[in-house]
Design a binder for these strands. Structure first.
Lengths: 148, 148
DNA sequence: TTCCTTGCAAAACTTTTGCATTAAA
DNA sequence: TTTAATGCAAAAGTTTTGCAAGGAA
């Protein structure tokens, strides 16, 4: 089961309609650009930069502007569809996995690797300061090439 | 015991000479600008942005350029005198505390608060991937205003 | 003299914004 | 038709760089 979507790309129906559904569930109007960005990013657990997403969409023939990519990613992040990571200062990374998890960051290659929750256990955490509560825990285990 | 330093500012000798010593220990030539930046940043455990450091130095009468502030902060960081933090994507924060510790990040005020090592205990951590070793652990506990 | 550091301005980069145009309901 | 989304270019903000001038050894 396949058909032409509104941009002329051959798409398998389940993927894009699953994305449209997720957008609709968030009250986000599923425009062509948004569905394409969602289909790309949400197809697997991954970390992409805005520039990577823009390049990928354009190389597959889509007509998208940089502003729309940024607007869309911020929109998705504010609705909890994706997660914005600040792991190095250079740029933002958008994580399609919004379930709780942590990261390895290889400082020599720049690679980001997921660390599932069960692989980390906290036996002690400090209480949140008065008037605040914990909104989330960002754990980045920085890696370097082994010396030995 | 006080004297005029090379920029005409009244400085207590122990502070600047302690900084000069720390720079010398790292093989960093203790120029006037570097000593001023070190004196400001290393006087207490704190988190400052490049712009804050530039503004502070200039308001106290120092002649420093933005480029020198950035060059100096990167130099200090590469020698382990300070630590560069990527906590929100907006800008870099320079932490004068290079001992192992973690952070609270209040997402409403932007405040950054130190969390001492003993307040966090890991009962389980994943092994570093083959060929790599752990260079450090960045833990940021994100805070929001308490709802109740 | 020789090498390193600084200041200034410009460049490089990432991200946001204003506004006219286009698409969606 | 009415509202919202898009594209483009320009703006904004942070950080880096090139190069001439200044300072230390």
């Amino acid at each position: 089961m396949a058909r032409m979507d509104s941009n002329g790309a051959l798409t398998s129906e389940p993927v894009s309609s699953r994305c449209e559904q997720r957008l609709a569930d968030c009250g986000i109007r599923p425009t062509a650009q948004r569905v394409r960005i969602a289909s790309l990013l949400l197809s697997a657990p991954q970390h992409l930069s805005a520039e990577q997403i823009l390049a990928n969409l354009r190389s597959s023939g889509a007509r998208v502007s940089k502003a729309t990519v940024y607007n869309t990613l911020n929109l998705f992040a504010s609705h909890g569809l994706i997660r914005l990571l600040s792991v190095d200062g250079s740029r933002a990374w958008f994580d399609s996995n919004v379930d709780a998890h942590y990261h390895f960051h290889d400082t020599s290659s720049g690679a980001l690797i997921d660390v599932p929750v069960p692989e980390v256990e906290f036996s002690r955490l400090p209480p949140a300061p008065p008037g605040t509560e914990v909104a989330g825990i960002d754990l980045v285990i920085r890696l370097r090439k082994k010396a030995s």
